[in-house]
Design a binder for these strands. Sequence first.
DNA 1: TAGATTTTGTTCGATATCGAACTATACTGC
DNA 2: GCAGTATAGTTCGATATCGAACAAAATCTA
Lengths: 141, 141
Amino acid sequence: MSTTRQAGFLIAKINQAAGRIFARMLRERGIDIHPGHGRILFVLWQHGPMPIHDLARRVSLGKSTLTNALDRLEASGDVRRVRSDEDRRSITVELTPKTAETRHVYEDVSRAMNEQFYRDIPDAEIDAFEATLKRILQNLE
Amino acid sequence: MSTTRQAGFLIAKINQAAGRIFARMLRERGIDIHPGHGRILFVLWQHGPMPIHDLARRVSLGKSTLTNALDRLEASGDVRRVRSDEDRRSITVELTPKTAETRHVYEDVSRAMNEQFYRDIPDAEIDAFEATLKRILQNLE
DNA sequence: TAGATTTTGTTCGATATCGAACTATACTGC
DNA sequence: GCAGTATAGTTCGATATCGAACAAAATCTA
């Protein structure tokens, strides 16, 4: 493997920069959501209610991070925790109606973010790029 | 821009997962360096001493984050802060000889990390991928 | 050259993230 | 069924990261 390979470094930089920009955009629109929490809502919007351990896997955050984040999202009225009947250990996380409003703003900002992200990059290159991202993600899981 | 675009989300996930793996690998080899601090050392190894504001730009971390991280790296004897003579506001950060030892381990781990990252992905695809990463980084700066 | 502006770094308070240890519940093999 | 193991979440302590406000030094402008 060549020493010129530096994907981890580049991705970390991009993530820092993109996270700052994304948080600022949301803040300017009156939504005070940290990117990590945004990812949680995003997954729940996409896939519906799910237990915490599934959620942790899908957003790639540690369990204890989820506990903390869900405490906060529950206090602000965005999600609910429901203990499962089949498995009394498991807790299902579901969105409240309140989040339907923020969803539009979140998606607008995501779109704007993507536009900046991919400015002047041809569609074919973007497709290839995202395909590689998915392969890398599989390699890490 | 299609709604199927989700680079930010994928990159955030990859960054979380890769960061955890990277930190664990370093810890197992007796080096207790958080990925963020590792990036700082990496840049200094690559480019030599530089003022804090340049460093912040190159690692894509906020100024106040750098202050904190450098306090820690200075306390552990890895870096030194030297106030510049030409510009009395500016502080140059330089590595101490101590870090020469950790550099080998860090580079070994980076290599191992890259291998896992890019497992089963052809070289041509990797080259294209990293080229796109660089373009995206420019779009965010 | 004096006052305004810009740049550099720090301080401060708030929050996110992690791993290790823990509790409670479920499963498994005998 | 019972002892041992595995799994789901939480708690706890340590650390990273951020933005806003600040202080000090340099630069610009009139």
